[in-house]
Each structure stands twice: as structure tokens, then as C-alpha cells.
Design a protein around this nucleic acid. Sequence first.
DNA 1: GACCGATGTATCGAACCGATACATCGGTAA
DNA 2: TTACCGATGTATCGGTTCGATACATCGGTC
Lengths: 198, 198
Amino acid sequence: MATLEFAVLGILHEGPMHGYELRKQLTTKLGAIRAAISYGSLYPTLRRLQAAGLIAEAGETPATDTAVPPLTSRRGRVVYKITADGKERFGEMLARTGPETWEDAGFGVHFAFFARTDRATRLRILEGRRRKVEERREGLREVLSRAAERLDAYTLELQRHGLEACEREVRWLEELIANERSGQTPEVTPPQESLGRP
Amino acid sequence: MATLEFAVLGILHEGPMHGYELRKQLTTKLGAIRAAISYGSLYPTLRRLQAAGLIAEAGETPATDTAVPPLTSRRGRVVYKITADGKERFGEMLARTGPETWEDAGFGVHFAFFARTDRATRLRILEGRRRKVEERREGLREVLSRAAERLDAYTLELQRHGLEACEREVRWLEELIANERSGQTPEVTPPQESLGRP
DNA sequence: GACCGATGTATCGAACCGATACATCGGTAA
DNA sequence: TTACCGATGTATCGGTTCGATACATCGGTC
């Protein structure tokens, strides 16, 4: 999937960044939905994005840099910035709805960037996700009711726990959907690109 | 990791099975903790296990089979059964504790086979998992308290939801641990290999 | 001045997934 | 009768992701 590409483009909207920092931002932004992203995923993704022209290297602004010239093979920090094409692509991905956007991973990432998504898209994604989780919930109920006597206590307990998680997520989604519908949520927050750079 | 190998060996303890059936069993057994396992994972895993001598083909018992000889290139169903080595290996994996056993995926699979795990191991895994989830929880609390003003409402909501999930899982683990300690749980259920075959 | 943990870039092998292709079977609608 | 369809079933391919690892620099601290 392109969930990591998507996330990287989204984070780079906040300004140029190098790999290490990018990973930290990704970790806090997505920390609630997945484990820390590994470099074995991040660096290939960056190369992919760069090859596609969606990001570019932004040669380390040597403003107040240590004026030490690379004596040894100085492996300088590589700073990436998003390109115009990248912004456009991110916009398209933001507006997209479909199976990947209500899959576990896809939903999480899209939700993390809801502040930049318009309300109609948010609603479509939330509802798609709800349907998805409801299906999962029904599947678990099936197993629990029809096969209860054939499964051991621990497997059963696992199913119960999973079922509970599904039910809670559905309730959560329901609340979010109600909020969206009643207009409690902002339309689209302004791009915060230049924020923090006075 | 070897979580899929582990699960396959565990399922095959219930009797010989072919790929399709195996997938269905895996799906109901692990349905609460991960999406349906894909054939692109299952078949390579089966080949790997077979190469290692942990499972073997159990040439389709032609008991009351349709006596139709393979006219065309009949791609018969391939039935796998666990070998003695496989059972031994599964036993070792059951008793193991360590980082992979309290990681998300690893924990789920090990828990699903807790009925065959001895109480001491169960306790060590549950406690390791609890520590792990507590760390995750603290990380989320950090983010929520220290960076609340720098994150948009949706990202914040995601963190809150994640935090709540962590807190609930900790409570759940706490209950399970208490149960184990008070001896409410069975030691090890007898192998149910021959069950259902009168 | 020796050490150490945080910062930082990068790659490798293995695992895993989604999509896809292909084939058989039972049922059912034309 | 035939034609189709959905469930059953085996299998692979390309691409993504992960965990482990290697290597290098920097700011402290003992």
C-alpha cells in the first residue's frame, strides 16, 4: 500500500526534514495505530518518493552550520522537502475513499490527517470504516455463538476481547460521525506550512 | 518472525489438513488479532516447514473418495500432517518467553495456544505483555500532555483513543494474571489430537 | 581522554501481503 | 441440456515492510 508514502508526504508539509527527524514525527503522529516505523521501510520509501519527483533533497541550509569542511567522508544529513507535485499528489490521496481507506492501516493514517481533509471525505471514510468494523464484529459473534463448545477457554477469551474492541470502535466511530454531521468539526484547517517560521 | 510457523504447527495438532482448510482454521483461531492470512504467506510457510521436516504430506486418504482417476492434470488437494520433530519444535516454541512473545503479533498467537502452555510460562508472557503495553501507554501519555497544543484535534483524538485501548488492555491483562495466580485456570489441557475421531 | 548514549544514514535477508491465475465441483437458472 | 456462478482449492509474482545490523558523528560525563 502507499500508506507510508502518504504519511511521509503529510509530515513533510510541516517543513523540510531529514530521515531521523521524519521518523520521530511519524512515530508520534502514528504512535497510536502502529509500532515505530523502521528505517528499512523509511529509506526505501524516501528513495521511491524522490524517484517519482514528489520530494527532493533540500541541501542542508549551511546558515549557522559548523564551518568545518568534510575532512573524513562526512556523511552529511540529507534534508528532504516536498515538491509541488508532491503536494498535489498528497491532495489527491487525501480526497480518496475506498477499501484501503477503511482497512486498519489505511484508516489510521487517513484519520491522522483528517485536519486537512474536507468534511464530506471524512464522513465517507468514517462510515466505510464503521461498516468494515461491523463486519468484523459480526464474524466474531458468529464464531463465539456457533463454535463456543469447540474452542478452549483461552481462544474464547481472545475472541471475546476482540469482539469488545470492535464494539467499542463502532461506538467511537458513531460519535465521530455524529460530530461531523452536526458541524462540530472544522472544515479544513489552513496549511500550517509557514507556522513557526516568523 | 516465526509466528505463522508456530500457528500452523499448532493447528496441525488437531489433525491432518490441506491448505484451504488450514487457512480457515487459522482465520477463526486468530481472527481476533489479525486479518485473514493470505495464501502468499501460507504456502511459502508450508514449504518452509516441510523443508525443515516439521510437517509432511499425508497423501490424501482415498477411503471413500470419488474413484475417478485423474483424467486431466488433476491437481489433488495436498494434505499436510505434523511430524514428531514438528511436535517437539512446537513444544519448545510454546515454552519460550522473550521479546517476540509480548510484541503485538507474537503475543496474540501465543495467547491463542495458552491452553497448551503451562501456567508459569503463561504468567511470564502475560506479565511481559503488560509491561510492554504499559510502556506504550506512558509514551502516549507523554505525547498527550507535552504536545497537546502542537497537534490538531484529530491527531489528538487518535492518541486518546489509542491511550484508552492501552489502558483497557492493561486492565484485561491484570484480570488474566490474577486468575492465573489464584489457580482458576487449568494446568495444561490434554492433547485433543484424537478428539472427534471415534 | 576514554567512554557512552543520542543522533544520523544506510543496507540485507526474510517475512508477508494483495492480486492474480488456474482448476474443479455442486447447484441452479435458461 | 447446457451454461453459468460461487465456493473450494493450489500456487506464484511483485512489491512492501520489518528486524537486525553496520557505520559514523556529536555532546556530555566520569
